[in-house]
Design a protein around this nucleic acid. Sequence first.
DNA 1: CTATTATGCCAAGAAGTTCCAGGCATGTCA
DNA 2: TGACATGCCTGGAACTTCTTGGCATAATAG
Lengths: 114, 114
Amino acid sequence: MTSNKELMGAGTGLLVLSVLAREASYGYQIIRRINDEAAGLFVWQEGTVYPLLHKLEKDGFVRTQWQQADTGRRRKYYYITAKGREALSEGHRQWHAFHHMVTRFVEATNGQSF
Amino acid sequence: MTSNKELMGAGTGLLVLSVLAREASYGYQIIRRINDEAAGLFVWQEGTVYPLLHKLEKDGFVRTQWQQADTGRRRKYYYITAKGREALSEGHRQWHAFHHMVTRFVEATNGQSF
DNA sequence: CTATTATGCCAAGAAGTTCCAGGCATGTCA
DNA sequence: TGACATGCCTGGAACTTCTTGGCATAATAG
């Protein structure tokens, strides 16, 4: 039985994992990508994302590797693991189920103003 | 600028407000309705919903009234306010925007396994 | 008649998440 | 040189949710 907490928090991990499923990346870039894509809907702070990345690593959903960029700066790259892809798939499934429920509820309320 | 926290937490308030937009109800019944509708996807605890209801009241999204049921038991009925309906409408809008973003992200990852 | 279950409200404390506000270091550009 | 962007991180505050419990009445089972 999935807890509500996991489900709600799933949205954040889901976004990060989906970014990494496309291409390995590092914290600073992940933050920019997601905030760009959010286009003002929300803004993730560094203090939100770095702890989340550490948690994803602890859970085995990503692995990390320090790399030296052309610029000379050190970057901590995050790679999604097989387990991470499973979690992404499952999370996506649950997300849809939850969204479907929310939509059904809210749209049942009335036919006005939406 | 909406914070991420508000957006994620919005899902819970959204469900409760949408229940109340259809029909005034009381805590115990709200919990059962939502858990029934969730059909195992998640289970809300009383400890989650009652504080949420108090918060919705404090924010002016609902007002309350004690009533005596036919059974003789006291029930605290929650009525959605105009402000609550506005919040529901706005929350619904944001929820869609967020869901759209999540979907776009996740489905961009690959064409497999979903 | 009594014990259990269902109804109905709530709170206290723990655990987890996110934000805010920083710190620290290097590279780039004016 | 000084400011800004990049790049990592932490500590503490604030908030949410869960767990576990209490309290009281009504319905039902034995």
